[in-house]
Amino acid sequence: MQILTVLIPVSLFLGFIGLVAFIWAMRTRQFDDPQGDASRILTKEYDDKPAP
């Protein structure tokens, strides 16, 4: 049972990382166009590394 004192904080911490990631994603407006983002992965044009 002693292991619980480690595992519970660990599980909470991991969950918390998820929450922070969610809040970050929301703040940077990554939920503004879910449909477009879903389709965008299908295009061959990469906008972060433009073709030379």
């Binding site: 503004d32 166009d33 389709s39």
Partner: peptide
């Protein structure tokens, strides 16, 4: 300069 489509809207 740039154009970006928002498909949801």
């Amino acid at each position: 300069h740039s154009a970006r489509v928002n498909l949801t809207l």
